[in-house]
């Protein structure tokens, strides 16, 4: 149960959307697929699913090209664009068609509808669904065949807070059951809680392919922010640590923890006014990684 991407390349005229991309997605893990807008995440996923034709290279699912699968829903579940459905069908009819195509018993349709919390809207036409409901319908479709490999393209879009929490739990439990889960996002913070591994791309090229922990460590994450009226004394007590002075009374300590800094300050008798770990460091690290690779930067 793996996804193997090898030398995958896709050009649209002059635009190289995906550029010689290679990576593996392994079973039992949630792999975050990260990159700024236009990095080529959706294009990569469409090629993995045999929807778009690669200019070069290949993508294999469970050792075979997706387009060769006879009952793909039983092997690979995927949610790309949740709005790409016929609005005139009911949610239930949509999934019944899906079940028919892959020889899945239609009883399974009601099961997944209940699993994503859509049972009350199941007999309504999709044109009346909100974005979050369409997102849930797409997830139901991905789960329909109980597949070992799952791909989700920005599944958090349009979901409310409960929905976000639900999908994080879902991704986690899918991976814990031994499945292979690839989930794309343009925000690091979205995947850092759930992903075991991250594949980062920018302008279609691979930037990083590593575990989430390694990415954080390698990028000097976990900065402790501390404020004290006796900054010099604290600086002395933190000898041997990587410390940056951020102001008269503020220090940033890298590769440490608030517990450690607090203990050291206490031992040195230095009063503290503020002690926290900077959550955003990973986001910043990600921005630092992809900064050069941003396709569409805002101006002004």
């Amino acid at each position: 149960m793996t996804i193997e991407v090898r030398g995958l390349t896709r050009r649209y005229g002059d635009v190289v959307a995906v550029d010689d991309l290679s990576f593996d997605v392994l079973p039992g893990t949630v792999t975050g697929f990260l990159g700024p807008n236009g990095a080529g995440k959706s294009t990569t996923m469409r090629m993995v699913l045999g929807l778009d034709r690669p200019t070069a290279g290949s993508a294999r699912v469970n050792g075979r090209a997706f387009a060769e699968l006879r009952a793909p829903l039983r092997e690979v579940g995927a949610l790309l664009d949740p709005g790409a459905v016929h609005p005139g069908r009911t949610g239930r009819a949509h999934l019944r068609v899906a079940a028919r195509t892959n020889g899945i018993p239609t009883a399974r349709v009601d099961e997944v509808l209940a699993q994503v919390g859509l049972e009350r809207a199941a007999r309504r036409r999709i044109k009346g669904y909100s974005l979050g409901m369409k997102q849930r319908l797409g997830i139901a479709g991905a789960l329909l065949g109980d597949p070992g490999v799952l791909l989700f393209d920005e599944p958090i879009n349009g979901l409310d807070l409960d929905g976000v929490r639900w999908i994080r739990g879902l991704l986690r439990s899918l991976a814990d059951e031994g499945r292979t889960v690839l989930v794309s996002s343009h925000l690091m913070s979205e995947v850092q809680q759930t992903a075991d591994r991250v594949v980062v791309i920018g302008r279609g090229r691979l930037i990083a392919d590593t575990t989430t922990g390694e990415l954080m460590r390698g990028l000097g994450a976990r900065v402790v922010r501390v404020r004290t009226p006796e900054a010099d004394a604290l600086l002395e007590a933190l000898r041997g640590h990587r410390v940056a002075r951020a102001g008269v009374d503020e220090l940033h300590v890298s590769e440490s923890s608030s517990a450690e800094v607090g203990a050291l300050a206490h031992a040195a008798g230095v009063p503290l006014h503020h002690l926290s770990e900077l959550e955003q460091s990973l986001e910043e690290a990600y921005l630092a990684l992809t900064g050069d690779a941003v396709e569409f930067a805002g101006h002004g």
Partner: peptide, 16 residues
């Protein structure tokens, strides 16, 4: 199917 984008799930379910 082309107007609504429904062709995408259709080909996901029947890639042949």
């Amino acid at each position: 199917e082309y107007a609504t984008g429904g062709i995408v799930p259709t080909l996901q379910w029947t890639p042949r």
